[in-house]
Computed example of a mutant assay.
Amino acid sequence: MAWFRRRPRASGPGGRQVNQADLEHLTQFFRTKQGVEGFIEPQTTVTETTLLLVAHDGEWTRRRIGSPDVAWKFAHQLSMPIYDVKLLGYPQRMRDYNERQRGRPV
């Protein structure tokens, strides 16, 4: 049965090469928002390592990043504060932003 075959994984860190479009998206978010901080989300059985960016008002975005090392290097290049979400948790401003978005009319 073909749907049980494992897809070959890329040879990059974390099993996947870093997608240039993902890096460009994260860079654009960082450059167009104020007070952006990065949060590394660990690899799980379902997802690869991701980098979550949260702006001062709680607006956020996330993309796959390949590995924690890639995330640290990316943040360092932008002089962006970066944290491990396992140690620090998610910022309250992100939860507040999500709550505000739920109350908006569509």
Rank of each mutant, 00 (worst) to 15 (best):
L26I: 07
E41G: 06
V18W: 03
S11A: 11
G89C: 12
Q101N: 13
T50F: 00
V18I: 15
E37S: 11
I40Y: 03
P42C: 06
R104H: 14
F29K: 05
Q28A: 11
M1Q: 13
F29V: 03
P8Q: 14
I40Q: 02
E99G: 10
P81K: 07
P13T: 02
R5K: 15
E24D: 13
Y97T: 09
N19L: 06
P8E: 13
L88T: 15
F30E: 01
K86R: 15
D57S: 05
D57G: 03
L53E: 04
E41V: 08
T32F: 06
P91A: 04
I82H: 09
W72K: 06
V85N: 04
G89S: 07
R9S: 12
V18R: 12
I82C: 06
Y83F: 13
Q77M: 06
L52A: 02
R104W: 14
A71S: 01
P13L: 06
M1S: 15
P105E: 15
R7F: 12
L53G: 00
T32W: 04
V70Q: 03
R64K: 10
I65H: 01
R102G: 14
D57R: 03
Q77V: 04
G35N: 07
R102Y: 15
F29D: 00
D96K: 15
A71Y: 01
Q43Y: 07
S67Q: 01
L51R: 01
L23N: 05
R64H: 04
K73P: 00
R102I: 15
G66S: 04
R64F: 05
L78D: 08
L87P: 06
I40L: 10
K86D: 09
V46G: 05
T49E: 06
E24Q: 09
L78I: 03
A71Q: 00
S67K: 01
M1W: 14
Q77H: 11
N19Q: 06
L26S: 00
A55W: 08
R64A: 09
W3R: 10
D84P: 04
A21C: 05
R5W: 11
W3C: 09
R62W: 01
F30A: 08
A2I: 14
T47E: 10
